[in-house]
Design a protein around this nucleic acid. Structure first.
Lengths: 195, 195
DNA sequence: GGTTACATGTAACTAGTTACATGATTAG
DNA sequence: CTAATCATGTAACTAGTTACATGTAACC
C-alpha cells in the first residue's frame, strides 16, 4: 500500500525519502514517521523498475527565498540547502506509471487503500475514476446490508453505542461518496445528453 | 490486539476456536475469518498462562431444542451435536483476567484497539473506564488540533473532499465520545454531589 | 553548545491475511 | 451425493512500527 502512496507522490514530482516521509504524514495521514517501511519500499520499487534514483551531492545551493526579500533572521544570504549528506532523489518510470494506474483501480474493499486511491485518483481517466467510486460504494452498501441483516444481540450499552456509531459512520460515508459520484457525473458526463 | 479480543470473549464464557472466530466476526467486526491468526494466538495465550484448554471429545449429546417441540425436519430426535472432531475449549485464567484489565487500559491512540477496549470496557471499574474514555478523547482532540494547525495545501478536489470527510468524522466521533462520557458521569458519579 | 531538523538505512518486532491441508457431520 | 458447516491447524506472505545506528547542518 505504501507503493501506491510513493508512486502517487513521485508522479507529482521527484523526491527523496525524507521528503516523501513528510508528505506521507501530512497528505495521507495515518502513516507514522516510519522510515523502517519507507526506505525498504523504495529499494523494492527500484528493483522492480517502477522508480529510478539519482544520488544528489550536498551542493551549495542559493536559497532563493532568502534572496527574494522574505523576512529572514539569517546573517548570511545565499546559504546552503539543509542537506547534510547525499540525498537519493527518486523519479517514477514509465513502468511505474502503468503500475500506479493498476494500483489505483484495485479492490476498494480496504478503507486505508481507498484513502490512498482517492488521494491520487486524479491520475485516472474519468471513467475509471467513476468505476472506482462505484466499487467502493458497492462495498459500503454490502457492509450496510450485512449489519442490518444481523443486528447486535448484546444488551451491553457500550457495545450498542459502538454499533450505532458504526452505522452512522457508514451512512455518512455513503452520503459523502454519493456526492462525489454525483459531482463526477455532472462535471464529466460519460454520454452526451442531447445526441 | 487479538489477545484483547480473545480474553474479552473468554471472560464472558468458555469457547473453542471456531466459535471464537464467529464471535470475532460479528461482535468486533473487521477481523476476517482469519484462523491463521486466531489459533496461533490461542496457543500463545496458553503458553503464557492467560488461558487454559480442555479437550472435549465429540460426544453424543441430546439436542434439547429438538426435544422441546421446536419445528424439526430431522427424522431422529436426540441427535449428536454438530462437532465432528475433538474441540479444544478455552477458559480464561486468573492471570488472564489481570492481563485483560491491563490491555483494556493501554494507550487509546489506536482506532482498532480502542474499538476492542470499548467492546469489553464493562469489565473495567467505573473510574478506569472513564479514564479510558478521557484518554481517547484527548487523542482525538490532539488529532483535531493537528489538522487545524496545518490544513490541506492542495487544490485537488478529491483530496480536499477526503480531508473534509476526515474532519467531519473526527467531529462526529468527538460528539459521540462526549455523550459516552456524560452518560458515564451521570450514571456513576465519582464524587457525591451533596457532602 | 545543546536541541532540532535533515538524511539514509537496518533489525527485530507486531499484527493480520491468504492459501493450504485434513477430516467429520449435516442438510437437502 | 454434494454442498455447506463444523473444527483445528500450518506456511508463506503482506503491511507497518519501534528502536537502533550514524552523521551533518541550522537555529537560538
Amino acid at each position: 500500500m505504501l507503493d501506491l502512496a510513493v508512486l502517487g507522490l513521485l508522479k507529482e514530482g521527484d523526491l527523496h525519502g525524507y521528503e516523501l516521509n513528510k508528505r506521507l504524514k501530512s497528505l495521507v495521514g495515518g502513516y507514522a514517521n516510519s522510515y523502517g517501511a519507507l526506505y525498504p519500499a523504495l529499494a523494492r520499487l527500484e528493483r522492480r523498475g517502477w522508480v529510478s534514483s539519482t544520488a544528489v551531492a550536498p551542493e551549495i545551493v542559493v536559497d532563493e527565498q532568502a534572496i527574494d526579500g522574505l523576512p529572514r533572521r539569517n546573517k548570511r544570504r545565499g546559504t546552503r540547502t539543509k542537506s547534510g549528506r547525499t540525498r537519493k532523489v527518486y523519479q517514477i518510470t514509465e513502468a511505474g506509471e502503468d503500475h500506479l494506474l493498476e494500483l489505483l483501480q484495485e479492490d476498494a474493499n480496504n478503507e486505508r487503500r481507498f484513502r490512498l486511491q482517492l488521494a491520487f485518483c486524479r491520475f485516472l481517466p474519468p471513467d475509471r475514476r467513476l468505476a472506482l467510486f462505484e466499487l467502493r460504494r458497492a462495498h459500503l452498501v454490502s457492509l450496510q446490508a450485512m449489519a442490518r441483516r444481523d443486528p447486535v444481540q448484546t444488551t451491553d450499552p457500550y457495545v450498542r453505542s459502538l454499533f450505532q456509531r458504526d452505522q452512522e459512520r457508514r451512512e455518512h460515508d455513503l452520503a459523502w461518496l454519493d456526492r462525489l459520484i454525483a459531482d463526477e457525473r455532472s462535471n464529466r458526463p460519460q454520454e452526451p445528453n442531447d445526441q
